[in-house]
Structures are given as structure tokens and as C-alpha cells.
Design a protein around this nucleic acid. Structure first.
Length: 716
DNA sequence: GAGCACTGC
């Protein structure tokens, strides 16, 4: 690593085509002290609404929606499309016959914050005319006409109401992100649209009545169905793909409004990305005017090492120049540390935020004037041939690079330093490969089967998933008993699995646990497995954290260790509740988490999931029994459910996956890392630097033949 | 003795 303190620097060249317009989303929220004068505020809101770029095309947009059943809207940053269009539609009479306007978002925070803003603009109480619905939280009522929600939630709704009959218009926002949920939703909506324009509900098999899950007929569902209006909103400059998919649908472009960002490239390719980022941070800090820096890095490890390097090098420069605040930001970082990036730097200080992709779309940080973009991103990929998931660092797409640089132009003109030559930019892919082409499809297939789509290969996806990936997932679902020989959803197993908001394997584990009399325990285990990283160990307290985490660990493996953590936290909470009351107890729990190196956000998430799936299994009528302190039935049940993830120890201490011969090691975070049981089942296998199995439990080899004969018939 | 980006039901 070359010394930072001296003259090492990078020469950046501006891009050749001058400036660019960058896509970004959402309007800025007003800050709270502006709320004081109600009338002044309303006037201000009106003024702001009228000044949005989209306001000038309101009439035209409404006309187009009247004329076309499907419309593509390409809305640039700050156009106001997400907040304004639903209001235009409402005022344009699209709710007159009692229909609702549904707007989907890929992320929960977006659904919530936008709904709040729109309710305020409309001068109504949130949950009345304007509301939102996300997992764990429904802020809608019978009078809700503008409903923001996550795309995944709308998919779930389609299971109960296949015609989506309560909606007159559905707006799919941020479609350019192409999440799995968005892609499935687009295919589904296309189909619903066809069905709704071909026939009214009264001609359907349901005799004109669409029943809710509990067989209660909702009055608004009985009415004759109008054709479904569909609006696909995208920030990508290229609407062609969407338009073609929807049979040449009309596309409308709405201007954006944002500040110019100067794009600078390095003259030469960089061999050491971390070093280049380090040099650029100091170059900006020492030579550029005020404004915070945002650096895009690939992962926690990279962030932590560059954090150390910046600190080291900071000591070498004159003290008057040391006013630099270094803030890491990644998803598994505890909330209180994440929140630090939002507090303005003290007077005279500059913030440098070292972030993963979380800062690309999910989190918007105010005050950023400089972006450093090494042009790399860590992505999940899935090999259908081996069935292995891996996490690899790849080059970003052009669209991603544009999105990143846009983060510098939200509040004023900015600069983006791309740590590669301009020629490399030209060679990048236009857009990122849609997620559906690089993930395991079992859940998608299960959901589509539940929606009556039996021919997955023939389903009209915007981009077809890999054929081999489909076959792999069909096999898994068949082995789990979710699909029949005719590839139809089985009854009751498949039906029950599709209703649970979990991965197919986890759903199966719950169903079996009811037979093994350990559903109480399995609900906890599955909830804990569904969240990311329960434990959080900061680098400087690694040793201490290990000792503490050990106190929860079970010799039988990670599943039971997770169960111990959950039980211990509940015990702490209950005891505290009786002594201190609920609110204080929750606060104390967060302290308890911190002391035990547990991520309290993850634990809270696990509790939410637990409550939701417990309610689900209760409604299904599954017997919720407990195996008490004897956890043998739990381990047997894990073997019976995750039988495809069984592995045997080899003489060299690695493990061989019985189902496909893959070789893997136990992940260093597992409590079985050293013990090396003869036979194990694992929750997942991910390839990083090597093949690792994570969340591992010791089982008896003989259980496999007994409990999963469809896979492990005993040979004589 | 090595380390999982992000999101959703």
C-alpha cells in the first residue's frame, strides 16, 4: 500500500459527453418544523405539487390512461410520478365505481413514506382515503382508495382474490429494478388483465362471487368487473422492453428535475481498488469544497478494512485537515450505527460514508456531494446445474453506475469519481440481469402453482428463467410432496405450503413438526432462520463476543443454538415486563441484545415472523405441540424436512452432500465448526471463497432412510 | 480459522 500522506494521487478526466440526467426516485419530505402553520403548509404543499415536472402533463396522462389499458411511464428523478399520479387518477374518476388504485413498491419503507406524504398532500388521515399495506402492518380501511403496498403483498393478495377485483388501476412502480416479485407480478397482471377484459366475474367459475379466504363475501367483490388498468412506471431510460412485453403498449416520458453531476474517470485502469478509493477519498477531502463523500464498496469486510486505512492515513496529515468523520453502512450493521449516517457532521467536519449497495436505492443520505464508484458490486448468483448459490463480485451495469452517480446530485451540483477509465464504462452491460435469472425458483413456482399456473415453462415471463433452474425447483417441490405427478399443487401439503410466507423447505418443516409434536420449537427455529445474521460481533470485540455467544450454543448444532437465543430473549422480556412494564422491557431487551452480541433488529424481525406464521399454522388447524426439553424430535424433524441438505463427514474433515456429491466445509460461524459430527443437515450452502454450509445440526445417518425414503432407500 | 450484497411474503 503506497503512502497516503504524500503526493500519491489519481488524475481524473471528465466524461466526453458533457453532462447527464440521472434517474432517482421520490420527492423530498418536508421537515417537521415546517408543520407549525397549517394553512401556510397546505399552501406550500399545493405550490410544490404544481411545480413538479409531472404536473404539466396531468391532463395528458389521464387521457392516455383512459385510452389505453396499459401504459408505460418513464419518469426521471424528481418528476413526482410516485406521489402525484395516483392522485391524478383519483381525481380523474378512476375510483368512481368503488375501485381502488393500488401502487406497488419493491421496498416497505418506500410504501410507508410515500403513503404518509400523499395522505398529507390530500389532507386526510393516513389509513382513510390514502393508506398502505405491508407485511406485519395494514394501514388501510374500507374507505381506502389510494393504496400503497409492496409488490410481494399484492402477489399474496392474488392468492385470495385471483381477479384482483378490488382494484380499478394497478401501478407497478420502480419496475426497472426487476426484482423477482416485480417480474412475477407483471406476468400475473398481464393475465388478470386478459381475463378481466374477456369476461366479467359473473361468467367465471366463481359464480360472480370471489370468496375471501374465510369464505366471507365482501360486498365490493360482487360487482361486475371492469377491465383492469395497468401502469408500469420505470426510471430506466429504455421503455422498449416493457412496451414490447405488453403488446406494444404506449410509453410516455416525464421529465425529471435534479442537479447536474460531473462524471470523472481515471486515466488508467486501477489494479488495487481499495487503494484507489483511499487515494480518492483524501484527494477530495484535501482539494474539494465542502460536501460529504459516499463510497460504494462490495461488502462488510472491504468496508471495515478501508475504514482502518482511512483512520491510519488521517493521522499522517496536518491536524487541521483531520476533520473527517468515517461512517460505515451495510445492512447487518445494528440500527443505531446505521442511523449515524443521517446526522449532519459537526461544524467544519466532512463525512465519508463507506457503504454497500444499500445506499444505491434503499437508503438516501442527505448532504452527499461526492460519490466514489469503483464500479463493482457483490451479487447473488445461482448455478442451476450444481444447485449452488454463490456470492460473487462483478462489474456494475451502466444503469447502476448512473444510479450511483445520481446520489451526488440530490441537493446541489455534485461530482462522481468512477475508478475506471471511460472506455470501460462503454463496455458495461446496459442493465443488471433480472433477479429471476439468477435465483432458486422453488418459491416462485410454488406461488404460481397456487395461482393455477401449472405450466411454468410456458408462463409468459418478461424474461424467461433458465429451463434447468425450473426443472431443479420442480424436482425439489415434488420431493417435498408439494406437487403431484401431474405437477399440480398437492392437497393438503402443497396448498398449506403455498399459504405460508416462507421458503418451501421451511413450510414443510412446520407441517411435519406438527406430526413430530415439536411445532412450538420449529416455529421458533424457522423464524430465526428466516432472518439475516442474529449475531453481530464488531471487529474489536471478537474474543469477548465468542465467549458470550458460546453461552447459548448447543452441542447438537446451530438450529438449537438459535432456539436457545430466542427462548433466552423471551424469558428476559417476560421477566422484565412484570417488573418494568412493556415499553421499558423492550428497551431493556435492546440493551440485553447489545450485551449478548445479538442484532436486536434481526431478533425483532424474527419475533414478527414467529407471530405471523404461528397465526397461519393455527388457522390451518395444525397441532401446536412442544417436545419440551428433549430436542430429539426436533432434530429428527429437521432431518425429515431438509433431507436434501444432508452431508457426511469425509476423512479430511470436509463434508460431502449426499444428494449431489458437492464438497463443502462447515462455516466458521457454526457451533459445529470444530466438533465435526459424522452426519449433518444444513440450512444452506453458499459459495464464497469456498463452499460453506451454514446453520448445521448433528443427525443420525440412519434417520435419513427412515424419514426420507423417497430419497434415501436403504440398499441391502 | 474465516467472514453474506440487497429485498420481499
Amino acid at each position: 500500500m503506497p503512502s497516503m500522506a504524500t503526493g500519491d494521487r489519481r488524475n481524473f478526466t471528465p466524461n466526453s459527453n458533457g453532462n447527464n440526467n440521472l434517474p432517482q426516485f421520490g420527492p423530498k419530505l418536508l421537515n417537521s418544523d415546517q408543520k407549525s402553520d397549517f394553512f401556510a403548509r397546505r399552501q406550500k404543499i399545493e405550490q410544490q405539487r404544481r411545480s413538479l415536472p409531472i404536473a404539466s402533463v396531468e391532463k395528458r396522462l389521464i387521457d392516455e390512461v383512459r385510452k389505453n389499458d396499459t401504459l408505460i411511464i418513464v419518469g426521471e428523478t424528481g418528476s413526482g410520478k410516485t406521489t402525484q399520479l395516483p392522485q391524478y387518477l383519483y381525481n380523474g374518476g378512476f375510483c368512481h365505481d368503488g375501485g381502488t388504485i393500488g401502487i406497488t413498491q419493491p421496498r416497505r419503507v418506500a410504501a410507508v413514506t410515500v403513503a404518509k406524504r400523499v395522505a398529507e398532500e390530500c389532507g386526510v388521515e393516513l389509513g382513510q382515503k390514502v393508506g398502505y399495506s405491508i407485511r406485519f402492518e395494514d394501514m388501510t380501511s374500507i374507505s381506502t382508495r389510494i393504496k400503497y403496498m409492496t409488490d410481494g403483498l399484492l402477489l399474496r393478495e392474488a392468492l385470495l382474490d385471483p381477479y384482483l377485483s378490488r382494484y380499478s388501476v394497478i401501478v407497478v412502480d420502480e419496475a426497472h429494478e426487476r426484482t423477482v416479485q416485480t417480474d412475477v407480478l407483471l406476468g400475473l397482471l398481464k393475465d388478470v388483465q386478459k381475463k378481466r377484459s374477456q369476461k366479467t366475474c359473473s361468467e367465471s367459475n366463481n359464480n360472480g362471487v370471489v370468496k375471501e379466504e374465510n369464505n366471507v363475501v365482501k360486498p365490493h367483490l360482487v360487482r361486475k368487473l371492469n377491465p383492469l388498468k395497468l401502469i408500469v412506471m420505470s426510471a430506466s431510460l429504455d421503455a422498449k422492453g416493457f412496451s414490447e412485453y405488453f403488446g406494444g403498449a404506449k410509453a410516455v416520458h416525464v421529465q425529471g428535475r435534479q442537479f447536474p453531476v460531473d462524471i470523472l474517470y481515471t486515466a488508467q485502469p486501477e489494479t488495487d481498488c481499495l487503494d484507489a478509493a483511499l487515494v480518492t477519498i483524501f484527494q477530495i477531502h484535501l482539494e474539494e469544497g465542502p460536501g460529504d463523500i459516499l463510497v460504494f464498496l462490495s461488502g462488510q469486510e472491504e468496508i471495515e478494512s478501508i475504514e482502518g486505512l482511512v483512520r491510519e492515513n488521517l493521522k499522517k496529515i496536518p491536524e487541521s485537515n483531520q476533520k473527517l468523520l468515517i461512517l460505515p453502512l451495510f445492512s447487518s450493521l445494528p440500527s443505531e450505527k446505521q442511523l449515524k449516517v443521517f446526522t449532519p457532521a459537526p461544524n467544519g467536519f466532512r463525512k465519508v460514508i463507506l457503504a454497500t449497495n444499500i445506499a444505491e436505492t434503499s437508503v438516501t443520505i442527505p448532504g452527499i456531494k461526492y460519490v466514489i464508484d469503483p464500479g463493482l458490486v457483490k451479487v447473488r448468483s445461482y448455478s442451476p446445474d450444481s444447485g449452488i448459490e454463490s456470492l460473487i463480485v462483478v462489474k456494475t451495469s451502466k444503469a447502476q453506475a448512473l444510479q450511483r452517480s445520481g446520489r451526488a446530485g440530490r441537493e446541489g451540483p455534485g461530482k462522481c469519481f468512477r475508478l475506471y477509465p471511460e472506455s470501460r464504462f462503454e463496455g458495461l452491460e446496459d442493465s443488471t440481469i433480472p433477479e429471476i435469472k439468477r435465483c432458486n425458483l422453488s418459491n416462485v413456482i410454488l406461488q404460481l402453482s397456487a395461482l393455477g399456473v401449472d405450466d411454468i415453462i410456458g408462463f409468459d415471463f418478461m424474461e424467461k428463467p433458465d429451463r434447468m433452474a425450473v426443472i431443479r425447483s420442480l424436482e425439489l417441490l415434488y420431493l417435498l410432496g408439494a406437487l403431484t405427478d401431474e405437477k399440480k399443487l398437492s392437497d393438503p401439503i402443497g396448498q398449506q405450503m403455498a399459504r405460508l410466507p416462507l421458503e418451501p423447505n421451511d413450510s414443510k418443516a412446520l407441517i411435519l413438526a406438527s406430526q413430530f409434536d415439536c411445532l412450538e420449537e420449529m416455529l421458533i427455529v424457522v423464524s430465526m432462520l428466516s432472518v439475516e445474521s442474529i449475531f453481530y460481533a464488531p471487529r474489536d470485540k471478537l474474543e469477548e463476543s465468542r465467549t458470550v455467544i458460546k453461552s447459548f450454543s448447543s452441542p447438537d448444532g446451530d438450529h438449537i443454538t438459535l432456539l436457545n437465543v430466542y427462548r433466552a430473549s423471551l424469558e428476559f422480556l417476560e421477566k422484565n415486563k412484570t417488573e418494568n412494564g412493556k415499553e421499558k422491557a423492550e428497551k431493556n431487551l435492546r440493551k440485553w441484545c447489545k450485551d449478548n452480541f445479538i442484532n436486536s433488529r434481526s431478533l425483532k424481525h424474527a419475533r414478527d415472523i414467529y407471530n405471523q406464521i404461528r397465526e397461519n399454522v393455527e388457522r390451518m388447524g395444525l397441532k401446536i405441540g412442544s417436545c419440551g426439553d428433549d430436542l430429539l424430535p426436533l432434530r429428527r424433524c429437521l432431518a425429515a424436512s431438509y433431507f436434501l441438505n444432508a452431508a457426511l463427514k469425509q476423512p479430511d474433515g470436509t463434508y460431502r452432500v449426499l444428494a449431489n456429491g458437492q464438497i463443502a466445509e462447515i462455516h466458521p460461524t457454526s457451533v459445529l465448526r470444530r466438533t465435526k459430527a459424522e452426519c449433518i443437515i444444513f440450512y444452506n450452502l453458499v459459495q464464497t471463497t469456498r463452499n460453506y454450509v451454514r446453520n448445521v445440526t448433528r443427525i443420525d445417518y440412519l434417520w435419513l432412510a427412515e424419514l426420507a425414503p423417497q430419497c434415501y432407500a436403504l440398499k441391502d
